[in-house]
Structure formats: structure tokens, C-alpha cells
Nucleic acid binder design. Sequence first.
RNA 1: GCGGAAGUGGUGGAACGGCAGACACGUCAGCCUUAGGAGCUGAUGCCCGCAAGGGCGUGAGGGUUCGAGUCCCUCCUUCCGCACCA
Length: 886
Amino acid sequence: MTTIEKPKTHSAPYEPQTLERGWQERWRTQGLYRSTEGGGKPKYYVLDFFPYPSGDGLSVGHCRNYVPTDTLSRYFRMRGFNVLHPMGWDAFGEPTEQFAVLTGTSPRVATDRNAANYKRQFDLIGCSYDWAREIDSSAPDYYHWTQWFFLLLYKRGLAYRAVQWQWWCPRCQTTLSNQEAQDGVCWRGHTGLTKKQIPAWYFKITDYADQLLEGLKEREWPERIKLMQENWIGRSEGCEIGFTTEAGEPLPVFTTRPDTVFGVTFMVIAPEHPTVEALTTPDRRAEVTAYVERAKATSEIDRLSTEREKTGIFTGSYAINPLNGDRVQLWVADYVLATYGTGVVMGVPAHDTRDFAFAKKYGVPIKLVIQPPDWEGTRKTADDLDDAYVGPGTMVNSGEFDGTPTPDPAIGAVTRRVAELGLGKGTTNYRMRDWLISRQKYWGAPIPIVFCPTHGEVPVPEDQLPVELPEMANFTPDGSGRSPLARATEWVNTTCPTCGGPAERETDTMGGFACSSWYFLRFCSPDHMGAPFDRAKVDYWMPVDQYVGGAEHAVLHLLYARFWTRVMHDAGLIGFKEPFYRLRNQGMLVVSTPHRRAIDPNATEPWVPITTEEAQALRAKGEVVEMRSAKMSKSLRNVITPDEMVEKYGADSLRMYEMFMAPFDQEVEWNEEGINGQRRFMGRVWTLVTETWAEASGEHYTASDEALTRLRHKTVKKVSEDLEKFRFNTMVSALMEFANALGERHRAGAWKTASFQEAVGTLVLLLAPSAPFIAEALWQLTGGFGKGKLAPAESGDPKTRFGEIGSVHQQAWPTYDESLTRDDVVTLVVQVNGKVRDRIELAADADEAAARAAALARPRIQEFVTNPAAAKFIYVPGRLLNIVAR
RNA sequence: GCGGAAGUGGUGGAACGGCAGACACGUCAGCCUUAGGAGCUGAUGCCCGCAAGGGCGUGAGGGUUCGAGUCCCUCCUUCCGCACCA
């Protein structure tokens, strides 16, 4: 035991590198961040999107997520909440497998190494995760339950195997879900996606389309994310109408505008539609076949581009409009999607802009069936249309419906008639497709299905789970389109759970988004055996109170997890339908990076980021290189790591800066110069507290400093409110202003007051969530200075005095008195005709007469207001007096 | 094209309809130091002025109001989302 040495008048300098060392270990030994259920405190579950532990480690960009949530967790703990703040690894995935292919390192080894590195970095930046709850989605005792959920979905008819056209990434050598393949670019950033038709497993997320839409309503989520999910689900109500071919074959269409059905002059079939061939007349065959082939070869992105002019080709056949018997041309066009609606579209050129353009181009007739209101009584016809008329109006040329106002009640009336005639019915369509879960990859959770020659696909019985990944040495795709697992012959060859005869295992694994669809439940009881989770613990902790992660998962993880949660709810496993109560997306952290012009002048992004070395080479060749913002990425070698920042400035300064830089949800460019400001701030706080303590130790002052007391209450209020509202940047400013006010008093020698001592103590507590290391060091050093415990502890190393005074992180959050957050004397701004002319000190509650008198007594005001009797006064108590003078 | 968000000093950004530019970065000056990419003090929107002070200022233009960065209308720009969904 060493005795605390009272610092000399000039205290030791602030050295974060040594100061921060060792605290995490002490906190962990003390079990400070262990969360246990119950205890009478309200619970608060603060969750970060669990990361994929990549070999690159964390960048300061990632810290923009983790630092604020950690600060929030620490704040809620001090506020007396039972906080669950866990961390784990979304460990299955393509990059690790790729790494294995390239280096021969086993994915297991690479994953463990990467996770350990992440953990080290989280520790370094002061994160307060409950590591006893660490989970790893690639561990058998985790994916055991991912497989169990697969079987649950299977048993509930929500998992099925089918052969359909799929997105395929040639680089990843695997199929991808629609969500992962948006815009023809794989979610890992690979272009050149193709389509492939192979058997694969699907989750029937479409069954939950309406529920998923409905459940969005009460979520405290960014509107942007809710909108993206709504668009993705893409619900649209309409009517299916049974057109037939002239030969009598059914050819139903889906339309949202049944009120225009009498205006159909042509129909369009998707090139992939199975009936195209049969509908093509012999004389048209050659042309149609060529068109279809061309369409299939055209990339999906091009086909879906609105820029592109519509093309199509006449099949030679006709269809019959069942409502009026019209004979209409049947066309094939690549803008019609085989996967939406019925793959056949009715063409109403007069009332649909796209159909209008198509009809004009190919000389298809245009028939007016909805009369615009201002055409009433005119002789205008379809020939007078410059473009399709899509607005409201009155039905015309529509037989029994003539005169019906549209869209209401016409749509309903026609839909009813269609149903009465047995031609169709009102239906709802969704853009969302079922979720493709199969991946032809090794490093994923095996799909627990066995194929038996006699019994077909057989689910692996629950007591035989987990289906463990076999050890393999070579993960290189062999080009067969099958998972490397197919080569693990011993593992593949198994017995049928039903008959015991020889059978083969499914060799596809589940995409990583299956594993991440339930991890938030596992955190509630990470070591639970015999079930995916302990119901009581899930009931206690769930739903997640505050979820934080990047917006890029808007229609991926965030939709999948909601779907799984609803399935579990329907299976009676949990008592809630939505997993995440509040959601926030942190803004991206970008970094100034050299860019060259895109080679393709029509590229969507005209600038391409490059490395500094590439930039030098290009500049030497006289090419244009511009500095622009880009995401940090290892390949661009523009990654800033927390390690180097902690080394240079300390973790506290990094944390403060991450939050101070910009509003939480806003994109911001990293600027290392700024972090110095926080480093200086930490240094000032250190000097202020240690010097005050050294000088005042043992003394208790009684004088009060009313203004400082009020500032303290204001600051506590501001910091608390800002934290809860995710306004971390202004929270930091408030702390700086508070510290600056203390510093001023200290320098002016006006610090020997009780108010000052209390304020210094409060400052340390207010800093604890944001800057946990310096706050703890100061707390231990001063023994809760300002709380009456002025003398240093009798004995012991300041770093191990938990027993005496506890950790700063176990202290109660300071409270404030609302009445003291307002000043009693204010500076009243005096305006004349809206321009500020003077300022007067006045009691906050002064009435208007007093304010007027005070203002008019001032010579500066008298100059501007020559005739006060004629003036009008606007008085906002505590703020301003505006004198409107003539 | 449709929908959303945003345009504020040299920079990041503050600002319940009420003192625009808090808090920082940077810059400049001074102090201290053997030295400093350290620390401290001060100045720092623009224009006029020695100063006191005055004028102008939140993308552009209009409006509402005693008062507008903030509310309303038109336009411009940027970012994001959706984009043949029948």
C-alpha cells in the first residue's frame, strides 16, 4: 500500500496514454458492466448493430456508432437504469472465406483473431460492454439455434426450396437475395451480377408483407428508413381482370386502374413469360424470338432504366377485352416484369404516360375513356391529347359506366362488376419477393436438411442439431456453382432421419442475415442451453430500447429481423411483435481522398476514389486528380484507426471528438486537426481539477457563487437532455462552456466558494459517460471532490480505491433544480424598430412598465426614441423589449 | 420524373419566431520557453472608422410579423431515397 502523495501546487501534466492504462481491467474485475436481470431498476437495452469482425479492424468511422451508444449506456447506468449493453460477432461471411481461399487460413482461426482484435479496440476506446455476454454467430452453440429457427420456419410452411431465376455474384460465387443485389451491384460492392436458375431455399417473408408494413407505424425510427421499408414492400391495391387470348387461353392482368379497362388498346407480355412462344404467330416468330433473346441479354439495370426508350414487338396475336369484347394487339416488351403481378399488362395509352409513349411510337390506337373535367361540353377526343390524362374525371366510352366519376367511385364499381362477371377480383400486389437464403458458401450455418432418395427433403431432427460444419482445408469454389461443402464427402453422405437409408446433406449454407435476425435475443441469455433463449430473460430485456447502426441495413437486417420476430411471436415463443423500439442511424464518417475521373463518361458516379500513390502517378501524367470525400476503405489506404488516435491523443479525446464533430446522424469529413481541441479540453479539465484539489485539499469553503450555481444546474439539464436526444455535439459544447467558466474563476482567484467546489465535482460526473478514463482518474484522485469528501482517502493507490469511494461510473447522475436553471437577473435586449440598440441588466421577472422605464432612461435609447408616447412596445420578459418608434 | 432532407464565417458547426455565428478548428498578435507541431493571453463574419459607433450580412427573389436563419410562396444548388411495379 502506498500513500497518496498530495500533488504539488502545479500538478502532474495530463498524460492520457498512461492515465488510461489499466482502468478497463479494473472495471472488469469489479464487474461494473455486468448486467443481471431484476433488482428493481427499470431496464434499458442499448444495442449496436453487431459487427462483422473483418481483418481490417475498427476505424474511427465505426467509432461514430460505438462511442455515442457507450456514452448513452454509461449515462443510463448512472441514472439508475439496469442497462444491457452487449457486443458480439456477426462472424459468418464471405470476406473470411475469401481470405481462407487466398491464404489457406482456416475461417475459424481468422474469425477468432479478428474478433479478438475488435475486442481489444473496443477496450481501448473505453467501451463498457458486458463481455460475459459476448456471442459469436459462427460458434456451433449459436448456429445450432439459427438452424433450429430454420426448422421452425420450415415447419410453419415459411421455408421452401424452389428453382427460380436468382441473382448470382460471379465474384462471390454465390446466389444473393434481392435485397443484397440492389441495382445489379452485390452488397459487397461487386458489379457484374448475373442471373442463374438453380434450386435454392426461400423464406416466405411475403406472407408477412402486410404485418411488416403495419408494424412500421408506431416505430420511433427515422422516417427515411420507414419509407424505404414501405417502398421495398411496395404494397399496391388493384384488380385482377381475366383477359383471354383470341384463341380462348386465359391471360389475366393486374391493374390499379380498373376504371380505365374500356380504354385498353393493346396488351404487353414480359419477354420471359411462358406463353410468349405459343402466342407468337409463325410470320412474327423470327422477330419476336430475336427480341426476346436480346431482352434476356440486356442487363437488368438497363432494362429497368426509366431513361431508356420503350421498345416492344408485336406477336401477331390478339386478346379479347372481356368487358367490351374489343380485340386488342398483343405485344412483348422488356419493360414488363415477369415477376410482378401476372407478367402481363394492359395498355391504356390515353390514361397512362408509359402506354401513351408506347402507343405513339408503334402506332397503336388511343381511346379516351376518362374525360377531364374541363373537357365537359367540348368536342375534344383522344387526338387532342398531348400526353396521357391521368387525373380525375368522368368515365366515357365505357358502356354502362359512362358518367361515373373517377377514380372514386369508378374503381370500386368496375372491380365489383369484374367480380360479378366472374372475371377476377380485387387483389393486392407486393413488390417484395420471398427471401432467398441459400448461399453456395462454406463459412455459414448449414441448412439442416437431408435429401433422401425415398423421402425427398427431410428436416434434420432437432435432437441432431447442430449440423456442424466439417473441417476443410480448401475452400476454393470449383466452378460447379455448388458450395465447397459439396466436396466434404464424408459430411455430405449421411443417413435419412426417416428411414435410415443413405442420403445426402444440403450443401448450401444460410446467408449471414439469417444469423443476425435473432442475435439480440441471444444476448439476453447467451449461455442458455436447450433453447435459443431463456423466455423469462427475453421477457425482461426485450424489446431493444435503443438500437443504433448504419442506414445501409434499412431493407436488409432491419426487415429480416422484424420478420423473424413476428414468426417467433406467432409461434408463441415471445410476447412482442417488434424487436426494436427506437432506432437511430449514425452519419457516415468520410475522409478526403484523391479521385480520378471515371473512364466511362456516362457512369453514374463521375469520380472514382484512388490511393495517394495512384494519384501521384496520374498527376505525373498530367491527369486531373481532385480531393473529394470517400468512405474509409482498406483498398484505398485511407483508413484512420482508433489505435493511432488513442496513441496520439488518448481515448477520451477521441471519444469526445467523435461526438463533437457534427450532429450524430450527419455525414462528416474526418479532420484530425479538430481532435486537438478535445485534447486541449481534456488537458484543461485535468489541470483545473487537480490544481484546485491540490490547493484546496482539506478546506471547505462556504461562500456561494450564485451565477455559478445556476450555470451548474443549467449544464446538468442541458447535458442530460442532449444525451437523451442524441445531441452529443451540443452536449460536448455545454461541458466545455461549463469547464471554461470554472477555468475563468480559477484564474481570477474567485474559486474559493462552495459553489465552485460543487461545480468541479459535478463536472467530473458529467464527463464520466463521455470521457470515462479521465473522469475516473479525477474521481479517484480527489475522492469525489465537491461532494463534501474533500480530503484524499487515507490510504491506497488512487487507482484501486473503489472500495472506499466506488467508481465514478457507479455514482448517481447529478440532478438539477428547474428553478435554478433560469437566471434571476437577465440581460434584456432593447431594440428600436427591430435593431439592437442597447442591453440592460434587469430582474428576470420585471414587468413591462419596469422594463420600459429602464430602457427609456438610457441615453442611447433616448437618441433613437424621440417621442416615447407615440411608440409601441413589444416586451418579451427575460428576453427583449422592442420599441417601435415612428 | 416523384418523394425527402439540407444550403449559416476560411473550416466543422450553434441558435424555444427574439442579441446570428455558441463551442471548436484554423489564422493573426503577444507572453513563456534553449527549443517546440507544447502551454497561456488576446483578436478573428464583411465594409467604413483612430475610436465611440455605423452599415451590410444565414443560396436567390417575394410574403407574413413589432421582429424571420427559423413560418409561407417561387426559383437555384447539393445530398439521400424511389424510379418502368402496370
